[in-house]
Structures are given as C-alpha cells and as structure tokens.
Write a protein that binds this DNA or RNA. Sequence first.
DNA 1: TGCCTAACCTAATCATTGC
DNA 2: GCAATGATTAGGTTAGGCA
Length: 619
Amino acid sequence: MCRRSLLANPSPKEGLDPVVSESIRTPCLFPREPPCDGKHGLCSCQPREARLPPTGIVMEGNLGAAPLRRLHGMPPPPPDGWKHAAVDRSGVVVFTVGPVATGSRRRRLVLRLSQKDALQALFQQNPYPGIATRERLARELGIAESRVQVWFQNQRRRRFKQSRSPPEHVHPEGEAGPTSTPAPPSRPPRPQPSSPGDSAREARRKRTVVSPSQTSILVQAFRRDRFPGIAAREELARQTGIPEPRIQVWFQNRRARHPQQSPSGPGGAAATTPPAPEDRRTPPAVQSTSPPLRPSPPQESMPPSAAPAAPFGAPAFWVPGTAPGVCVGQPLMIFMVQPSPGALRPSGKPPPPAQVAVPWAVSSPAVTALGQPGQGAILPPAQPEAHIPRWPGSPYGEGAAPPLEPQPQPRSLPSPTSLLDGLLAAAGAPASPGPSPGAAADHGVDPALPGAPSLLDELLAAAGAPASPGPSPGPSAVAVRQAALAGTPSLVEQISAATGIHATPGPSLGPCAGERAHLALPGSPSVQVALLASLGIPGSPGPFPGSSPVVAGAHPAFPGSPSLIEEILAATATRDTPWSPPGPPAWDEGVEATLEAPLSEEDYQALLDMLPGSPGPGA
DNA sequence: TGCCTAACCTAATCATTGC
DNA sequence: GCAATGATTAGGTTAGGCA
C-alpha cells in the first residue's frame, strides 16, 4: 500500500496537461470567457455549464479508435470526454483530449441533477447493471459508460455503508441480498453470473482481446509507468485502439499480476523482466473487441497510430468499422495532433512510441448548430467514451472496430424495448404517456428513445420544422429516416436533403436497416454555415438557436421536448420496486450502431479552407 | 472550509480464452 | 483441466466541486 505515497505525490503529472498545452497553439474555436489565450487545453475559460463545450467540433473517447459515429449527428461528448478542436498552422483541424486537462486524474465529471436522478432511478431497479444497461444508460444520459460503472460502484458503496449491508431487493440474479448478514468483515455476496437460459441476466462486457502488438505497447508503457494518468491512458488508447477504460483495467490487472515490471514497481526490474507470457502468444486471428479495421496486414488490429508512423499531415485514412452487414460511408478525415514525447512526460520519463496523427471522426457542425452546449443535439451518445460502436449483437467492445470476419452475434436484432421501457416494466408503471403521442409508432424505429419522441421528431420539433407536426409525427418521420438509412450519402447530400425538409435523418454506418441514425439540421442552410456558426468564426451567423445551456430535466438533445430522464423518473416513481429482470435486453446491444454521415474530401477541404488558420483553398 | 462524491486504487474473484 | 488474463466486485483513499 505504499503506493499511496505515489498517489499522494503526483506532481509530475500535475499541472496543465502537456498533451493539450503542447498540441494546441491555435486559437480556440470554442467561445469562452474570459478569452482564451490560444494555448488552451482544457479551456478553463469555457462556459461552466456542466463543463461542456458550448459548441464546435468535438470528439470523445480516446483518440485512437475515435468515433466515426460522432462524425455527424452525434451529440457533443460528455464532460469527461470532450475534446478541443482547433486548426493548426497548416490548416489542419486539430483535436486534443479535453477531459483530462490537468493532473493525472480524469477530469471530474459533474453530473447534472437530472442525470443523477436517472442513475438513482435505475439503481433502485438494479444496482448491478450489466454492460448493456450501463451502455444504454450512458448513452441516454450522455456520459461515458465507464462513468456509469464507476457511479454504480460508488453508489453501491454509499448505500452499503449506510445500511452496512449491500443493497437489498436488488440482486440481478434474484438472489437474496445479504440483508440479514452484517457484511463486514466478510464481503457481501457478489452478483452471480446468469444462468443459461436466463435471458434476464445481464452479461458482462465482452472480453477484450488484446493483440500481441497492443500488449507490447502496453507493456512498454507499463514498464515506464505503472500508474499512468488519464492523459497517458488516453494516449495509449489512441495508440492501441483499445478504449481507455480497458487500458485502465489492463493496468490494474497488470499491476496485480506483474508487480515486478516497472522501474517504479516493487521489483524495479523493468529492463530485465522477461517478456510476459502474453507477449509470446500467437496473435489471434480476430480480435473480439479490438479487431482489425482494415483488411490487409495483420497489424491492422492496430489503429494506424500504432502502425508505422506516418508523418503528421499525411495521415492515412482509417475507415473504422466495416462490420459484416454494416453500411460504411466515407469517414471524415480528422487529424490528431499528438503531444511531443517530452510534453507527455514532463517528468522526463522516456517518450512514448511514435506519435501519429490519426484521422478520425468529428462531429458534425450541424450538431453544434443545433446547439446544446452540454448535450448532444442529435443523438444520445452511443458510447460516450466508445470509439467504435458496439454494433447490434456485436461482441465488439467499446472502442473496437468491427472485425473483418463475422463474429458471433449473440443477440438478435434490437427490440424496441428501451431502458425506459425496462424501468417502466420493472416499476410496474404504465408506459409513459408523456407528450409523445407518436411514441408507439416509433417503437422499433428509434430504440434509443422509445417511449419518447423519436429523435428525429424531437429534432424537428425543436427546430420548429414544418415538416414535423410535433414531437412524434409517427410513421412519416420514420419513413424519412429509414429511407435515409438505405445509403450513405455524403454529408452535403444529406444536408441538401435535410435542408429540403428542415431536418434529415443521417445515414447509418451501422446495420443498414432497423438502426437509428439521425442527423438533424434544423434550419441549417449549409454545412459551411453551420460550421462557421458553431465555431464562432467571424462572419458566421453565430450560434444557432438552441445553443444554450442545458436545462436540467429537459431532454439533453431537445430542450423543448420532454426529457427521457424525466420520463424515467416519472415512470420509476415507485422507487422501491424490486428489481426485476428487464426481459430480453433488447436494447443492450442492438441500438448503438449510430454512425455519422461521411463527408467527402471536397467537403472536408472546403471546411478546412474556411477555418481560421487555414492556408486557404488548395493548400 | 467542510462535505459530498467522482476518480482511482488494491485485492479478490469470476469469466473467458487458448493450449 | 489449467494457465493467462479481462471484467467486476467490495472497500479504502484522494481530490475536485460546491454550499
């Protein structure tokens, strides 16, 4: 436990995140106050509301397996996941990690009241949510799944400390909680895995398979530092394509099982430590959760950042996610400026492996045009910290790109059941009527917000689009949405279509049918205008209406629409209702394939040309 | 400044995977 | 079956945000 002393003195990692400070030197694109000095990292000068970026191009999760699905139509990332965007001297849009601006810890997430209420509501139903529920909740709350997991851990602890017994009434497997048994010193029984055939049991996260090459990177990092801070973990995540939370777990397990492999470790035998067993393992043909994204070389299991470095500015295109049966469009090319090794290790530690700019995804300016500074304007985040969605029925873990070959599809297609529905059912509450007369019609169409107005509907309503009579027009909107899912038009095409109807569904890079994908550009005349506005570029029309602070209780995406959270809370008024299996976790794996619309290179270049600092067209 | 709690940690254990 | 390792748990601690 002497490691506490290490934690107690994290000075090397404290201070301005070198990643940020070193990587961004162009004017901040986010409006903030006081004015940014241009060397922003985690702009402390940003609006305070929920510590969310008010607008702009944002990204989430680790930079490696960055979310293409955030390309267009995805909401801004959660407070602990947002990135900064800027344009470097060569006119390249640059993103940096936002949440971890300072220190070794992740930036503390400040949950809004509505988010807490929703978490509490679900906690009452099930204090041991499975990965599916966590992801679902995370998506609907706009926070990272890992944050949901941590919250539940802390919450269980709080509850347990209060009652000196683990949460009663709520063991997922129906076991009687140790309510009558004083927990300490013995531990309370942990939830047991589901039994075969019990579909109500929520599965664990799919096991992440770390390839040898990924392991190599991690091992190297482990030898340098057994306690990487969030910035380092993010960097590793970027390099390996493994989600940062998995990186964190990997280090935890590693520390527990390989206490000798680090100069800072007990043994301090980093240089002489023989390769770990996994280093000698045969590379798996296919990774289940961090599978290859490209069909060619074996190393493709690694994101390009982990492959032989390409010079910055000459990024390789990295097309995340070509899962079987998945529609794929063009990715928007985005460049990540990587920190200099020294910057990453101000303490003088050995530099990390080669830094590579990774073209990944960005959110659509239209998203910000719709304009909720803290919450996504378009969709509940599929996986706030995920980088590649878990496709419906996909075993791929967060941040993992779909494998090249078909993977077991344990789940059937998503059912229209939503988290809310599950809560409703568990609580014995009637389906939330809410101001969503068309909710039923949307069932199965927009599983993300079942029971609530469909996303498109809400967008339309929020935008006051004439094409939508209200929160849930029903089949018409559905038809429009589904039609758009058929192909993967360019963003401009989508916008063109969108402007025609004042709102448009976005294409889906996920399973072509039955999956939701929304891109709404209410009143957005063009992507250029939207981008200019969202970035606050002079001459732009300015922020779009609606780019105001999120009001707690309001739907994060649609201020004028009923909140899903509200509905959950309303539906779970009977908070003491014992947890009951949510039934087939229809929403656990089937609704997350929400990808963004692709952007053609021409469009992309046009955007770049308009950005401040851009060398101009053709540059 | 103190409280609350997110974040991070260890240790133990379960689950999955490959041999 | 076993070893390796990822995932999850309880519980301890640290530290950020806020009243």
